[in-house]
């Protein structure tokens, strides 16, 4: 007789069963911290509409330990997003000449180089002038 047995899977906790799934979920959850940062950053920039003093006062409020910890956590999340994102690019971007394929390390590496270059430019624009 046939009576196929269906094994169940917990919809809420399946990702805790394997380390690789936990890392996946952490990667996805970086989006929550990054979104929260955007809200704070937008409010920070909005102060400029009230003038430079309002902006500076807001920035001084962000020096409290709670806010610094928040931004450190966001930084960790943002770095984890960036690193996992760039490391996945070789699976998506395939560059070929004839039978030869550009090695993964160049695909991912070029993104890291671009990341560094862009970050340097932004620091220069904000601080260096």
């Amino acid at each position: 007789m046939r009576e196929p047995y269906r094994r169940s899977m917990s919809a809420t906790t399946w990702w805790l069963s394997k380390r690789i799934y936990v890392l996946f979920m952490l990667r996805e959850l970086t989006s929550v911290l990054i979104a929260a940062f955007l809200v704070v950053y937008l409010i920070q920039l909005a102060q400029l509409a009230q003038g430079a003093e309002a902006y500076t006062a807001f920035v001084e409020r962000l020096a409290s330990p709670g806010w610094i910890i928040f931004h450190l956590l966001v930084l960790i999340a943002a770095l984890y997003h960036s690193i996992t994102w760039f490391n996945l690019t070789p699976q998506v971007i395939i560059l070929r000449r004839g039978e030869e394929q550009v090695p993964s390390i160049f695909i991912a590496g070029s993104h890291y180089v671009a990341w560094l270059a862009v970050s340097v430019v932004i620091v220069w624009v904000v601080v260096g002038n």
């Binding site: 690789i20 799934y21 996946f24 996805e28 996945l88 699976q91």
Partner: peptide, 9 residues
């Protein structure tokens, strides 16, 4: 697909 990538592993 949410690119878990375990399939490729």
């Amino acid at each position: 697909c949410t690119f878990v990538s375990e399939c490729s592993v």
